[in-house]
Design a protein around this nucleic acid. Structure first.
Lengths: 337, 337
DNA sequence: CTGAAAGCGCTTACAG
DNA sequence: CTGAAAGCGCTTACAG
């Protein structure tokens, strides 16, 4: 069933059918519109979007790009990533776009995908290749959105949350509950995002006249395993440290586990705050207090800005949005007062 | 940069370039192949897949369909779903296919997607519409894979795991640890999948001469909230029940929480086994013993069978694969001996 | 081994 | 308000 078939049935030209479908109603009489629509409905006609894409040089396909480090990784197991994708897909669909998900190993793969399908826009998730992205970007002919990047590039939609404030809030919360020996867990060096969060930790200490102690920084990857190591090490320090902040919920959970393995009771002897406020937080014992970065809003904003750019064709100024964060209180912090 | 451009640069016809690209090497001389490939590489030429799709009436696009109950749901927050998608995307990419993710509210939306893009195959995730799927299926012109379905339809690739065995193993494990008052938590009625699992529970009881007690069945949705309700109710029964099995990890976690809220210590007073063996299981206290259904293998098999069907064009006999399950021991079950 | 022609299903100017 | 023509970038027979 094609345009041509519909046109023949309706006794009009293909053009007229096309105009009806594309809502160019000023070019067709009301009577014809109704007749054509009836036939379309009757036949269950659906336009072939490959053909449309071929003429329009646009596809209504948005590529969600997941960059990977190693070939065996499944990044969709990461709840942060998958929640994003779910939200983006929904928003795209509502706006008449299609979602192509693609994992890549090198930046140039993106160009291939773009050319292959005339992709209208790209959303990068988990951009491991941020350093090389600055070279790639000028050659991309479509709008691009990215998250949590500190790249200052033209033509880039960048949605991140207030990372410094996030750890500031966490650390401040500990201080307000009487803690002054507060560990920071994350290997923040050489990572803009984590460094920003580290600065929030420093800021809270500074504002409250608590000296910064380098030995309270535990430079492990903010993963479950990294958290366990940090937790064990903290426990081995004989009650010096009473609280720990970190940059990922999963790491906070690891810290609690590591501290327990080291003989601590949690949260009695060690208070912990996570980051991301994943659903996970409510399933742990104690339930994890965490910094919420409103992942849904992040995904939504990126999508909206991207579609706006596609529609208007304006593609120049960088868009940088910083989303507010907040602390979600649960049970993993104890007051020392 | 199109086929035509490449052809002109190489001084051959478009056809020849096409043959080189599509590996029809018996139709082109080695010398021409090399020349054309060099130019393709030099120009960074990538074929336009919309055009190819238009002529071939095939797209190399596979649709991953996520059906939803209500409009505000984000099914990708479900780790079972998102892990599947990640695995499928990877396998498709390796085989030269593209992944289009699409959530739908009614089965007929699938047909639209199919026609829109000449989708080569469909994978249904979380098929809420199983009942209406039997009507839909005959009208789908491409191979279809689905999970956990009990539909016996021709033309359907159905991957599920041994659900009965899953709950049989869980219940047996409880029995082997000295439990005989074992609760089953899930509203299994009118749900083939859950009923199958319920049968496994019954089977284990029967084989061990433990009487089945209807009052040990807690007919709540196997969600976190449902689990909490079941846990509370179990705790209110004054130590009658010493163990609980269920059909989802998240529900098991809820049961532990509910039992605690009801004054129980877990696992001392109540042993619990989950289902799915999500990563989550290792983050709870106690770490959750669970039935593993090898989600990755499920996703992989569905993809492989689907691609095989697409390639061979054979599209008749239903494929039913039942994947084995196993129990993964952690700390949520205590021995009464 | 190579090529000219026709066609996939649509849309965009351009004419009337 | 309506339509005939050309073209998007590719592939499939068909000829040579």
């Amino acid at each position: 069933m094609t345009l041509k078939d519909i046109a023949e049935k309706a006794g009009v030209s293909m053009m007229t059918v096309s105009n009806v479908i594309n809502g160019k109603h000023n070019r067709v009489s009301q009577k014809t519109i109704e007749k054509v629509n009836a036939i379309i409905k009757e036949c269950g006609y659906v336009p072939n979007l490959s053909a449309r894409s071929l003429t329009n040089k646009t596809s209504n396909i948005i590529g969600i790009i997941i960059s990977m480090d190693n070939k065996d990784e499944n990044l969709l197991e990461n709840p942060y990533i998958s929640t994003m994708i779910g939200t983006i897909e929904k928003e795209l669909r509502i706006n008449g776009y299609y979602t192509m998900v693609r994992s890549i190993y090198q930046n140039t793969d993106v160009i291939t995908l773009l050319k292959n399908w005339n992709v209208d826009g790209i959303i990068f998730l988990y951009p491991n290749f941020q350093d090389t992205l600055s070279e790639l970007l000028p050659s991309l002919p479509c709008p691009v959105a990215i998250f949590d990047s500190y790249l200052e590039l033209p033509n880039l939609i960048n949605i991140r949350s207030d990372d410094q404030k996030g750890l500031y809030l966490a650390t401040k919360y500990m201080i307000n509950h009487g803690h002054s020996h507060i560990a920071f867990v994350a290997d923040y060096e050489n990572n803009f995002l984590l460094t920003e969060r580290f600065q929030g930790y420093r800021q809270a200490l500074r504002e409250n006249d608590i000296p910064f102690r380098p030995e309270y920084v535990f430079s492990f990857t903010p993963s479950y395993e990294g958290g366990i190591q940090a937790g064990k090490q903290i426990a081995s320090m004989q009650n010096m440290i009473t609280a720990a902040v970190t940059t990922a919920d999963i790491c906070a959970i690891g810290i609690m586990e590591g501290a327990r393995l080291g003989g601590y009771r949690v949260p009695i002897e060690l208070s912990v705050i996570g980051y991301d406020n994943l659903k996970l937080c409510q399933y742990t014992v104690p339930k994890l207090t965490s910094i919420s970065q409103n992942i849904t809003q992040k995904a939504l904003l990126a999508t909206k800005f991207l579609l706006e750019r596609i529609r208007t064709g304006s593609n120049k100024a960088p868009i940088h949005v910083k989303i507010d964060v907040e602390i979600v209180e649960r049970q993993s912090v104890i007051s020392l007062f």
